[in-house]
Nucleic acid binder design. Structure first.
Length: 329
DNA sequence: AAACTAGTCAACCGCTAGTCA
DNA sequence: GTGACTAGCGGTTGACTAGTT
């Protein structure tokens, strides 16, 4: 089958930048007749362009619902989050950002976000830490340099520091529990066990972006460290004296997309994002299926009963977007 | 001030999937 | 089932701009 070329140069069709007059003609035509019929539209609208070009121009720049201007922090978070789930499926990503086009997102990714991720030591393709791949060699890195970058935000310095310094609010639900688990239990549990659990599967709904920072101080704790770095939807990082590893996870929930939960002091573990009850239940189910984990967990709980106020999330039920903005302001 | 370089982004190209006759 | 056609997607290009030498 021989395809008919969409744009026949020999027909004298124009290429290159659109003029205001052309835009006006296109907008006027689409407003009168609606979208579609792109192949025949140019002729009817009096444009010397191919239909494909008209469709693109309309879809990317002339549509009234298009949002122009700088990407917001939240939008960037969403892009990174969605990209971790969809990869370079720009159209799919664009569907998650109303008013933004696939082309715009693609450009922004390639010119800004990708570079920033690389700069922070994060592979923009796998969303895993580039440093973690060499975790075995990290012992040789000077202590001061053993800092695993946290990703996700639109700005390099957007910050955990701010979170750390914010007023701490007490938590009471699954998030608080998980923080205690992370704080205490994470130091002890066998890494492979925890990795299995965290990456053990579950329904995926939407993507999320989470950064989990963990620091374990004692030398002996190194062997029992773990990190939760989901390849597809939950981005977490964990460091143990600077050593970072990663493993896939399956938490999901758009609500988690706001990176706002907790960040403890530097000597402790914590989830920087809020985990809602649905996510928690998913984790719980995975845990229950793992007897080894449950044994460890039982031990942890016994110890935890007497000491559960040690680690509280900074943030837990903050669902107002303005408050989130203030958080990073 | 001119030349060069790097960054940005609008637009194009090639391809695929879906639909219809 | 096949071919023609449309819509849409993702990768790439190239014009333009800003910054640097």
């Amino acid at each position: 089958m021989v395809r008919t070329p969409c744009c026949k140069a020999e027909l004298g069709l124009k290429k290159g930048a659109w003029t205001p007059e052309e835009d006006q003609k296109l907008v006027s035509y689409v407003n009168r007749h609606g979208e579609g019929g792109w192949r025949t539209l140019p002729e009817k609208a009096g444009l010397k362009r191919c239909g494909k070009s008209c469709r693109l121009r309309w879809a990317n720049y002339l549509r009234p619902d298009i949002k122009r201007g700088e990407f917001t922090e939240d939008e960037e978070r969403s892009i990174i989050s969605l990209h971790s789930l969809h990869g370079n499926k720009w159209a799919a990503i664009a569907r998650g950002l109303p008013g933004r086009t696939d082309n715009e997102i693609k450009n922004h990714w390639n010119t800004h976000i990708k570079k920033r991720l690389i700069k922070k030591g994060v592979d923009p393709v796998t969303h895993k830490s580039l440093i973690s791949d060499k975790s075995e060699n990290l012992q040789e890195i000077p202590e001061k340099q053993k800092v695993i970058p946290t990703i996700i935000t639109s700005d390099v310095d957007l910050d955990i520091e701010k979170v750390k310094n914010s007023n701490k609010k007490s938590g009471s639900s699954s998030a608080g529990f998980l923080n205690r688990v992370a704080n205490r239990f994470g130091k002890r549990i066998n890494q492979s066990v925890l990795s299995d659990i965290i990456g053990s599967g579950g329904p995926l709904t939407t993507t999320t972006t989470t950064t989990t920072s963990v620091t374990v101080n004692s030398e002996s704790d190194k062997s029992s460290s773990s990190s939760f770095t989901p390849a597809s939807d939950l981005l977490c990082q964990m460091t143990v004296n600077g050593n970072a590893t990663s493993s896939p996870s399956t938490f999901s929930d758009a609500s988690v997309n706001d990176s706002l939960m907790y960040c403890g002091n530097e000597d402790n573990l914590g989830f920087t994002n809020f985990l809602n009850d649905e996510d928690f239940m998913m984790l719980e189910e995975s845990c229950v299926d793992n007897t080894e984990f449950m044994k460890e967990l039982s031990r942890f709980l016994e110890e935890d009963v007497n000491d559960n106020d040690e680690m509280m999330p900074v943030y837990e039920h903050q669902d107002n977007i303005n408050e989130i903005d203030n958080y990073f302001a």
